[in-house]
């Protein structure tokens, strides 16, 4: 059974439409959600978490419909949307104190380990952290309640190369323990290091959702490139002259 199943997800804004996006995430897999800026990755992420209200489509986690089991499902998933951008003047210890009260499976030991691993001082406030450290705080909050599925929106943006490598390593560590990860990014080199599945969104539509090896092989054989970068450029590149002359 898929840990996350999305069917026919649609969301229309005045200048953008997410059109019939479908994909699923299997237990213990790392799914990379790729696409260029403005392709619809964040809208997809927000829709599957009900932060925005989808116009159509079904979203099921662990075989349960999200609409009817929202609180129960959120106990079992973790989300980090880039840098922690809330309560900038509150101490991290205060944030953790409140957050832990909401989770049945809050793991204090794991939380302390992540704080230590990410060099986060609980007496500091988010306002005192760099953007990269805020991402780490966001991840600590998402990882400390033994989530079975992590949904991460651009988690590596703003991180230095060493922190990025450490984060990707922690993904593989979590994967070994059966945690599934869905993360969006436009930094394709991150995906090549750890993702085993790819969902590619372009202009609001899902162009592909399949195992990474199959995706790469299919495009290599079709002569569209042999890396994610090359494939994305093949699909997305528009001539500046063509765009401006329209």
């Amino acid at each position: 059974m898929a840990i996350l199943e999305i069917q026919g997800l649609c969301k229309t804004y005045p200048a953008f439409r997410l059109d019939n996006v479908s994909f699923s995430v299997e237990p213990g897999s790392i799914m990379g959600l790729i696409g260029r800026n403005g392709a619809g990755k964040t809208t997809t992420m927000k829709s599957i978490l009900h932060i925005v209200h989808p116009d159509a489509g079904t979203i099921r986690y662990f075989g349960l419909d999200f609409a009817g089991h929202e609180a129960e499902i959120k106990q079992r998933i973790g989300f980090a949307g880039g840098a922690a951008d809330y309560y900038k003047r509150k101490k991290i210890s205060q944030l953790l104190d409140v957050t832990r009260r909401f989770y049945d499976n809050w793991d204090e030991t794991a939380c302390e380990q992540y704080l230590k691993a990410f060099s986060l001082d609980p007496e500091k406030t988010p306002a005192q952290l760099s953007e990269g450290m805020k991402v780490k705080l966001s991840l600590t909050l998402a990882l400390s309640h033994r989530a079975e599925l992590l949904i991460l929106d651009e988690p590596t943006s703003g991180l230095d190369p060493v922190s990025r490598e450490e984060l990707l390593e922690s993904f593989r560590f979590l994967q070994d323990r059966g945690v599934a990860i869905l993360f969006s990014t436009h930094i394709t080199s991150d995906l090549e290091k750890c993702a085993d599945h790819i969902t590619y969104i372009s202009k609001g539509r899902c162009l592909a959702s399949e195992p990474m090896a199959q995706f790469l092989e299919r495009h290599r054989q079709a002569g569209r490139g042999s890396t994610l970068d090359e494939i994305m450029v093949h699909y997305e590149k528009e001539s500046l002259y063509d765009t401006l002359s329209v």
Binding site: H50, E70, E72, K74, F79, Y86, Y87, R89
Partner: peptide
């Protein structure tokens, strides 16, 4: 100003909570 809404709706509660 604290972006309380984003933090809150991601907690394991219903959105309307």
């Amino acid at each position: 100003e604290s972006n309380d809404v984003l933090y809150s709706v991601l907690l394991p509660v219903k959105k309307r909570d």
